[in-house]
């Protein structure tokens, strides 16, 4: 399966939006946190997990989804949310803790929920898997179209919830696709030290579903395999497990000194940055550099607009903390 011209430009532009968004967040996050780094201070407090480098997974998968399909995501959710079409302004405002945010500032960066595009995420590792199964089951029971995609990290594939959910999906033949973003690290712990298998795609066999491993952080390869898996799910043929090799260009969270990384790893990863690589490929395919420049400018403008919206928005009254526990 190959992306159409439109699809590949969408993938590229969305990767750029995501990267520019993370770069903007990174900069603002540090406001008020120097010279002493205190997580609680500045316009964006709390933990911050950036997705720089992992954009190909989000766009290669979400290129096949529309707003009606379901995505459940992780503690590192920005690229996934952006690719799924979560409102960028509301998302930025949420990260600033403003009243105009997705939850009015209650949830924050790890808890982005946008029912308008069927997107949710959780800060609890492995917890994207079960809800995706449930949403897929719900579509089956209601006889409604739509597939569910659960994103997770390679670290999360060691969590019981992952294995239980895969078994459910296999046993009930659910229209769900599990997508593991293998950035080879769970905070400071390398995949190889704590995982019984080298690649998680082999685990699919235990749950009677196809498994794929995609090397190289390549948006085209991801588009291809994810497209087949999602089409398969739409046709009622059941779940698929996909593991994608990807790169975490940032620390685990902002403030991470990353001393656990082997020397030279970061530099090697930056040399493989998927965004310039895709740009080169698009140019090789005959796209004019100027038209790509335009897409990049448009992406930057979207991010700038979302960030100003967030900055200019008001905080909700503090007493709003006490509302919305129940509907």
């Amino acid at each position: 399966m190959k992306p159409t011209k439109e699809q590949s430009l969408w993938m590229y532009e969305t990767m750029v939006v995501s990267r520019r968004f993370e770069e903007a967040i990174e900069k603002i996050y540090l406001e008020g946190k120097t010279p002493a780094f205190n997580m609680a201070s500045g316009p964006i407090p709390g933990e911050m997990h950036l997705s720089n480098g992992q954009e190909p997974v989000a766009v290669g998968v979400c290129a096949h989804l529309d707003a009606n399909d379901i995505v459940t995501a992780t503690h590192r959710p920005h690229h996934q949310a952006i690719a799924k079409g979560v409102d960028l302004k509301k998302m930025a405002a949420e990260i600033f803790g403003k009243s105009t945010g997705l939850s009015g500032g209650r949830g924050g960066h790890m808890h982005l929920i946008d029912p308008a595009v069927n997107f949710s995420c959780s800060g609890i590792i492995g917890e994207s898997c079960g809800p995706a199964c449930g949403a897929a089951l719900s579509r089956k029971m209601q006889n409604k179209p739509g597939v569910a995609v659960a994103f997770l990290g390679e670290g999360a594939a060691n969590q019981g919830a992952f294995h239980e959910a895969l078994n459910l999906a296999g046993a009930w033949n659910l229209p769900v696709v599990f997508v593991i973003e293998d950035n080879s690290w769970g905070i400071s712990v390398p995949k190889s030290e704590v995982t019984a298998v080298a690649r998680n795609d082999v685990r699919a066999a235990g749950y009677d579903m196809p498994g794929h491993y995609i090397p190289g952080n390549d948006p085209y390869a991801i588009f291809n395999i994810a497209g087949e898996a999602i089409a398969r799910a739409r046709e009622g043929k059941g779940p698929t497990l996909i593991e994608v090799e990807t790169y975490r260009l940032a620390g685990h969270f902002m403030g991470d000194a990353e001393q656990y990384r082997p020397k030279g790893e970061k530099e090697a990863l930056f040399a493989k940055d998927p965004i310039p690589k895709m740009r080169e490929r698009l140019i090789a395919e005959g796209h004019a550099a100027e038209s790509l420049d335009m897409l990049e400018k448009r992406a930057e403008a979207r991010v700038a607009e979302a960030i100003s919206f967030a900055r200019d928005s008001e905080y909700a009254p503090e007493t709003d903390a006490l509302t919305a526990v129940f509907v």
């Binding site: 803790g97 500032g105 209650r106 949830g107 960066h109 905080y315 007493t319 709003d320 903390a321 006490l322």
Partner: peptide
Amino acid sequence: FPDVPIPYARHMEQFC
């Protein structure tokens, strides 16, 4: 702490 999940926004959390 009031009987609500812990809010993210700093002013809301500090309020609680």
